[in-house]
Amino acid sequence: MPRTADLATLDQDELFQLAVNASQGGDSASAIACLKQAVARDDATAKAHYLLGAEYAQIRMYERAVELMASALALDPTLSVARLQLGLLWLAAADTDRAASVLAPLAELPEGEPLRYFGAGLCHLIGDRIAEARAHLELGIARNTAILPLNVDMRRILDEMARLAAGQGAAAADSTKAHESEDGRHILLSAYTGNTSH
């Protein structure tokens, strides 16, 4: 890992690639150091903000993760993966209104785009339309071949939905929403695991 003084000589692409390499190697400290250097500059990119937000989410600094994801979208509203992750963060915080607002533009993605289906599935989950949520998340998984860790994340959400429906009885299932329960928040937050290379 280069020293801070050396990082100052690197351009955005170099800093980003070093951060990706560090993240893939499990070195969050080095990844964050590179990305903090990147986002502090006038030419900071949306993808650098996104990746730094993802790194913060992985180390459970969720408020910073939200700030960075929001900054990424401010710089590039078309960065759909950041939009999905920010929506997941708001869901994990049980702020369903903000989650729905952030996720809604994913419905404008082209037919067949996996993130469109993931966003729709999460919006259905917010509205307690469980069958529709399950169908859209399954469709997104079937269509997604580009960001494979997302399939694992969405499968965890599906598994948690099934567990809550089957394991707690009808009364408990009626009173405990997947996005409001402690277990549900844990499952939603797990969606950051392994995703920082995207």
Rank of each mutant, 00 (worst) to 15 (best):
A92N: 04
L79P: 06
S80Y: 14
A94W: 10
A70E: 15
D97M: 13
A94S: 13
L75Y: 06
A74T: 00
D76P: 02
A70Q: 12
S71Q: 09
D97Y: 11
W90N: 09
A72Y: 06
Q85W: 03
W90P: 01
R83Q: 15
R83Y: 11
W90D: 06
L84F: 14
D97H: 11
L88H: 00
L75M: 08
R98A: 14
D97A: 15
T78E: 05
L75D: 02
T78S: 08
D97P: 04
L88N: 05
L86C: 06
R98T: 11
M69A: 08
S80T: 15
Q85I: 01
S71G: 12
L86W: 03
G87W: 00
G87L: 04
T78D: 06
A74P: 04
L88R: 06
G87M: 00
R98V: 11
R83H: 10
L91E: 09
A94F: 06
R83M: 11
G87N: 00
Q85Y: 05
V81C: 14
S80N: 13
T96Q: 15
V81F: 15
V81A: 15
D97K: 15
T78V: 07
S71V: 10
G87Q: 00
L75N: 05
D76K: 03
A94D: 10
Q85S: 10
A74K: 06
L86D: 03
A93I: 14
L73F: 13
A72Q: 10
P77H: 01
M69R: 00
A70G: 15
A93F: 14
A82M: 02
A94G: 04
L86N: 03
A92L: 04
A92V: 04
D97C: 08
V81Q: 12
D76C: 01
A74D: 02
L91T: 08
L91W: 11
S80H: 12
A72E: 03
L88G: 00
L84S: 10
D76S: 07
V81I: 14
V81N: 15
L84D: 05
L84M: 13
A72W: 07
T78C: 01
T78A: 08
A82W: 04
A93P: 08
R83S: 12
R83E: 14
W90F: 11
L88F: 06
L84G: 09
A70I: 05
A94Y: 09
D97T: 12
M69Y: 05
A93K: 12
A92K: 02
R83C: 02
L73I: 13
A92S: 14
R98E: 11
A82D: 04
S71C: 12
D95N: 14
D95F: 04
D95Y: 04
L86T: 06
L79Q: 07
A70L: 07
R83I: 07
A92P: 01
A93Y: 13
S71Y: 07
S80G: 14
L91S: 10
R98Q: 13
L79E: 02
A72P: 02
T78W: 02
Q85V: 04
D76E: 10
D76A: 08
S71L: 14
A72D: 07
W90C: 01
L89N: 03
M69Q: 03
L84R: 10
